[in-house]
Design a protein around this nucleic acid. Sequence first.
DNA 1: GTTATTCCCTACTAAACCTGTCGACTTTAT
DNA 2: ATAAAGTCGACAGGTTTAGTAGGGAATAAC
Lengths: 147, 147
Amino acid sequence: MLSQKAKYALRALLMLAERPPGTMVLAAEIAERQKVPRKFLELILLELKRDGLLVSQRGRNGGYCLARAPAGISFGQVVRLLDGPLAPLPCASVTAYRRCADCHDEHGCHIRLVMRRVRDSMAAILDNATLADALAGRVGDELLEDA
Amino acid sequence: MLSQKAKYALRALLMLAERPPGTMVLAAEIAERQKVPRKFLELILLELKRDGLLVSQRGRNGGYCLARAPAGISFGQVVRLLDGPLAPLPCASVTAYRRCADCHDEHGCHIRLVMRRVRDSMAAILDNATLADALAGRVGDELLEDA
DNA sequence: GTTATTCCCTACTAAACCTGTCGACTTTAT
DNA sequence: ATAAAGTCGACAGGTTTAGTAGGGAATAAC
């Protein structure tokens, strides 16, 4: 399950992606428009900034904007940053592999093999979906008709 | 992330699937062999039984066995039962749809569309992978060679 | 250089959830 | 009767989630 944090982060990023590149937007404005508690949002924006997805400007006329073009930011990066690895099990993770303590012969573990497939397909979708794709209505391979 | 409960449940079911159909196995034996706390496992087995995946026999010579053939029990059923809907967001769920309270115009929500694709691909894998498939080494479309 | 604005940072909290544990009760075979 | 086994409710300790609170630091405008 996606956390509120990740959901809020995606909303904020999508909102920023709609603006002309370099436009500074106030945290307060994002909070109001996206209906996210202001202080909570600040924590999230800060995390996104630390990870290099956002650029910020302090003081008057400050705010946040994307650090790269919307086509350069994927859902996968955002979800991993805020919610951790995609894989349903640590032993099925590629980016954050960890052995199951109680699993003898991991190599033949059927559960792991299935979960590995799940993680691969999640990664294929999320790492491939960028903010630009979302705004353009491109979801996966198909282009969405009107609505 | 898969809960311990779901992981233990899958382990127990796979173990039962290896036995000849109808063989009663003690909760205590499953617990020991799969290294799962006994009392905790009992809760899980009970839940599996209530959902019709297991059959139990009380008293002496009692135990648990699968209620159906291993080919009739999918990973998806088990995961949904113990961990809830597959979808990363309630608004992207098929089996347990719930509107996002703070989402105006859900219809055009880009986040939802992406998460819907994630849930579809998870469901395709998990609902298609049965206990029998796992034991046979069938994972998805390909058959696994030795190792 | 003062002031208003805006992001930055740390600490805290209340509630929920996860992972079990405990103890008693019921059913059943011997 | 007795012992073996599943059934059930309550609870507890730790972790995570979803925020809140309050100030500190940088910057622009005046």
